[in-house]
Design a protein around this nucleic acid. Structure first.
Lengths: 300, 300
DNA sequence: GCTTTGTTTTGTCCTAGACAAATTACGTCT
DNA sequence: AGACGTAATTTGTCTAGGACAAAACAAAGC
């Protein structure tokens, strides 16, 4: 079998670094330096792709590409402590009140075990506490673990998929809401839906009428959907992974598209550094959504 | 309020046409011709964005960009019969065995009604028939309606989201499978998960042990996941909207990454024109998945 | 009818320059 | 020392036009 190599589109797919950035880094920092095929097009060896993935992860953690690419191998040792693979800490048989127990199921690739443990916590805590005290911190922990290289991409996907299922399943059992009508979605490029589901669970529990439109809705279509569904509120979610620099412009753009009578709520880990805008409610934390709902009801 | 305008990144987001393509069309066909901001960067008026969205839709339908862009306004009349908005055909009160009834709920933006009707059909038909005779054709119908401009993007999203919920909810009630272990996912850029869920439902019903990893998994991570979960089969799904030209290379690439002992199944509407490859099973139709499962069991 | 061969269409990749927004570094003032 | 404003730097995205291969289509032959 030949050594695997990736064309530039494949590298973009697998690393999340745009073609422009890949070419610019090559020009500017001298890395990566791919080979070329017969046609003069870039061909990245697997080793360079791996290194790029590592760099991308550390960038998402806050490091700067210039430093990372310059540093030779110390960064691998110092910044990326890959999980000691076979530690396999024994499951804490005790009360199991810790999130570690849940993460350990994921690390062991034990989907059914994870589902069962989550279900148990849901029943014990009730939906609201479950969302706020289990799902939210667990999501944060998984994100941190990913940044630190302690969890694989597919493990994170398994966690997300199973948690999504549980939340949706539970939301389905709630009675129909009485209003206001809240339209929930994300912008294109933003595919993380867990935050949205958490908000939906909390709002539905408070009796709001939620209209879940999934992810990746073009801005113009969000406007049309708000009109067609006679929505009172449009709620957007930005994950921490979403390119920060784009969020402000996007929200401003959408605010222009929506009629002024429709409220625009924005939440998620991505908005931490977002400046306030007129006509846009920032809800950095989950409880803020409940507060905003009560405030809305007070004024309508 | 000023006239809305979009920079090239926003147009890419909202139309799905890459920046390269937008610039190339401008150079080659003389459309679109955006204005420029103070910095010389493209600024597309909303009207041009609308037209681009229309062109993209017709392209997905099989038309060619050169023709579409040349044609002045006849194409709008001839090819894009926008749904007569207020027709509002009365719901067929009768047996309701037709898919039209279900689509009509979506058109009326009646989420709860749709859910209830779907649930009813599920109970009446049983899961296997429901997937094959309701969900699959309905998905196709919705896709066709979208191509013909008879359904809005957000309506399609609502349909997808609600159907996903119902399928996942139902899958959750099935008992744990006995094997083989089937890992289900899609490649990056492919975010359609409905096809995958349909397959999962059928396979789980046949007693397979499904590992749902959600969408958009980098190829290298699919390989790692297959190893970590000791998967017997990796099942990929390509929707009809996925760029055809990329599929062949992607599948070939993944086949190289996976160990030869792991079977690779590929399905979905996107593979209609895909050439056969050694070590890759093509499953264009849903029943093919069941057949493939039985074949696998026969040889193991 | 079908297959093969040439032509057109179309998307993606390439180089290389420019610049603005974000971030860091620095110097000054309180 | 800490706060603040300004300069330097880093970094991503945009622009221009050229090139070419893969796909789609047309035409000719069997």
């Amino acid at each position: 079998m030949s050594t695997l190599s990736f064309n530039i589109a494949a590298v973009e797919r697998d690393t999340g670094l745009s073609k422009d950035v890949l070419r610019m880094w090559e020009r500017r920092y001298g890395f990566p330096v791919p080979e070329r095929d017969a046609n003069g097009e870039r061909l990245y060896p697997a080793a360079q792709v791996e290194r790029l993935r590592l760099i991308k992860r550390l960038m998402d953690q806050g490091h700067r590409p210039g430093k990372l690419i310059a540093a030779p191998e110390e960064e691998l040792a110092a910044l990326a402590p890959r999980r000691p693979r076979e530690t396999a800490a024994p499951l804490p048989k005790a009360a199991g009140d810790s999130l570690d127990e849940l993460i350990e199921y994921i690390r062991r690739h034990d989907g059914p075990g994870f589902q069962q443990a989550m279900q148990q916590r849901l029943v014990r805590q009730g939906l609201q506490a479950f969302v706020q005290d289990t799902v939210a911190p667990l999501t944060r922990r998984v994100g941190e673990a990913w940044e630190e290289g302690n969890i694989e991409v597919f493990e994170e996907h398994l966690f997300t998929e199973l948690t999504k299922r549980l939340l949706r399943q539970t939301i389905a059992t709630l009675p129909a809401g009485r209003g206001p009508r809240v339209l929930l979605t994300t912008v294109p490029e933003e595919q993380h839906v867990l935050g949205l589901l958490m908000v939906e669970a909390l709002l539905a529990l408070e009796g709001a009428e939620c209209i879940p439109l999934g992810t990746q809705m073009p801005l113009l279509d969000i406007g049309r959907a708000a009109e067609a569904h006679a929505a009172d509120i449009v709620a957007l979610s930005f994950s921490i992974a979403f390119p920060q620099r784009q969020i402000g412009g996007l929200v401003q753009h959408l605010r222009q598209i929506l009629p002024p009578t429709v409220a625009l709520w924005v939440g998620g880990g991505g908005i931490r550094r977002l400046a306030a805008q007129p006509g846009v409610a920032l809800l950095p934390q989950l409880p803020d959504a409940i507060a905003a709902l009560q405030a809305w009801r007070g004024t309508h």
